[in-house]
């Protein structure tokens, strides 16, 4: 919940770039879910790469929130409307239904109250798009089992005492939380650590075991 969360996003730099768009592959997965000409709020927008892509290539009317000053500066310099702010506290300022999509990319696990942030997202936006590292992935399980220490993988590359990730969850945890909150998962994509979609479909046992990241499109249940 400080500059580290930005560092963490940057360290998703393990993720390859999409050759056609130059966008990080995991961000491209999210971008592909956004319809052109819509209004988008990107919470934890980092250096603004996704917002910039959406604005230029999809004619999206975008806004962003980012914690780190370096991230905000980079966004403002690109001409993006981004405020320095905190997902935990600043989402309440936005009116209900103001956006078509609210994006939370690799940020959910770094907020203080993930369930409140999810609620706020779906209050502000008609759809939420969330991506996060899957703590249920076999690599993570294996690392914990064999070393007996907090797992370090390509996706989770920092030791427990410096990681900004304070609320890790598994895909299964996330699916159950959504059910508790009355949130409907419209789409889910499982991906490897490069952000490439894996053929594992759904959000069941194998998805939770084999995927390193999940991308979910959410909406409020009736």
């Amino acid at each position: 919940m400080n500059d580290q969360s930005h560092t963490n996003l940057a360290s998703a730099g393990n993720n390859k770039l999409n050759i056609a768009t130059g966008l990080r592959v995991d961000l491209q997965l999210i971008a592909d879910k956004i319809k052109p000409g819509t209004r988008v709020l990107d919470v934890g927008c980092g250096d603004g790469a996704l917002l910039n892509y959406l604005a230029t290539d999809k004619d999206v009317d975008g806004r962003g929130i980012e914690l780190s000053q370096s991230g905000v500066n980079s966004c403002v310099a690109r001409g993006l409307a981004v405020i320095q702010g905190d997902a935990d506290t600043d989402l309440t300022d936005y009116p209900s239904g103001a956006f078509d999509y609210v994006i939370l990319s690799q940020t959910l696990q770094a907020v203080h109250q993930p369930h409140e942030v999810l609620r706020q997202m779906l209050r502000i936006g008609r759809r939420g798009v969330v991506s996060f590292p899957n703590f249920g992935c076999w690599r993570v399980r294996w690392d914990l089992l064999t070393r007996g220490r907090m797992p370090i993988t390509k996706t989770l590359d920092q030791p427990w005492y410096t990681t900004p990730n304070i609320h890790m969850c598994t895909v299964k945890d996330f699916v159950l939380l959504c059910a508790d909150l009355g949130i409907i998962i419209e789409q889910s994509i499982m991906a490897d650590h490069n952000g490439r979609p894996t053929p594992i479909q759904g959000s069941g046992f194998f998805a939770n075991l084999l995927s390193e990241q999940g991308v979910f499109v959410l909406k409020n249940g009736v």
Partner: peptide, 18 residues
């Protein structure tokens, strides 16, 4: 000021300089 502008989702950037 930012909060007031966000209430209407105005195009606002906000930076606090250290």
């Amino acid at each position: 000021i930012v909060r007031a502008l966000n209430a209407f989702t105005a195009k606002v950037s906000f930076v606090e300089i250290e």
